[in-house]
């Protein structure tokens, strides 16, 4: 029965769209990052650009465009990281009993939630791309024709989807092992800060001190940002004093890294749901 997870997905999406204010804030947050942090920093960084000599034939990319990719990644991270929270309510208020006492297999709960995580990630990524390029001056897909843009968007969604799935599995697995909403909130806060800042989302990671650099290498967010930049900006550009070259190998490896991460968290989430006690 391959569509057994459908009701879980259906219910999540109803609630995602039902709460207008919540839906709206998840979209406003990335816009605010770009509008305030982005524009403020870009006036600083772009002033420093005169200090670097840009190799001929390489395009210079403004900071807002550079960080736009990071903001898409950040939004996917936060949305999926909090996506498992709903399981704590389901568990504590008995809603999970309804599903566990039904003929539906437990694993389907995780799959349904995962699909809802991907969908939310897609909706947000697309809105950020449209909003950023139309209103904030983010310069995505500049050298590309229409079919190229469609392919690039699909490429970005592939990366965002895999990443979101990985983090919603992680978040679900943690939620199923915790008792309280407060505990979950605490863990999410502790996780989200290093994940976000120890990555190449807002700045290049190459100049990090050795420890941070090592952490950035095992940070899935780094690989997501690689993928988004490759598709949105290009395989050869210059930003923040660094020459970015994304070869096919780098991008393929980045995707493989996300897949490995998602497989690991999938195993973790499955183990959690199969061992959860609901009585």
């Amino acid at each position: 029965m391959k569509t057994e997870f459908w009701p879980v997905f259906w219910k999540e999406m109803i609630k995602f769209f039902r709460f207008k204010s919540l839906f709206f804030t998840t979209l406003v947050q990335p816009a605010l990052w770009m509008a305030f942090f982005g524009t403020a920093m870009s006036s600083n960084f772009d002033r420093l650009n005169v200090l670097y000599s840009i190799p001929s034939g390489v395009g210079q990319v403004g900071y807002l465009t550079f960080m736009g990719a990071g903001v898409i990644a950040m939004t996917a991270l936060f949305t999926s990281l909090y996506g498992g929270m709903t399981l704590i309510y389901d568990k504590n208020f008995g809603l999970m009993k309804e599903m566990i006492a039904s003929p539906m297999q437990r694993s389907q709960i995780i799959l349904g939630l995962g699909l809802s995580g991907i969908t939310k990630g897609f909706i947000q990524a697309i809105i950020i791309m449209v909003f950023g390029t139309l209103f904030l001056g983010v310069d995505f897909f500049s050298q590309q024709n229409l079919p190229g843009i469609v392919c690039s968007v699909l490429g970005i969604l592939l990366f965002v989807g895999t990443f979101s799935l990985g983090f919603i599995f992680l978040s679900s697995g943690i939620a199923l092992r915790l008792e309280t909403h407060e505990g979950m909130q605490g863990i999410m806060t502790v996780l989200s800060m290093p994940l976000f800042f120890v990555s190449n989302a807002l700045y290049p990671a190459d100049a990090f001190p050795a420890v941070l650099k090592a952490l950035s290498v095992i940070n899935p967010l780094t690989y997501l940002v690689n993928g988004i930049r490759y598709f949105a900006i290009g395989n050869d550009f210059y930003a923040l004093g660094k020459h970015y070259i994304y070869t096919t190998e780098i991008v393929s490896w980045s995707y493989a890294a996300l897949l490995i991460f998602t497989l690991c968290t999938f195993v973790f989430a499955m183990d959690s749901i199969n061992n959860v006690s609901v009585t």
């Binding site: 009701p7 259906w10 109803i14 039904s102 539906m104």
Partner: peptide
């Protein structure tokens, strides 16, 4: 209605 829908859905 959604509560009942959901239940009917998980029982296929």
């Amino acid at each position: 209605r959604e509560t009942l829908e959901f239940h009917g859905m998980i029982y296929q």
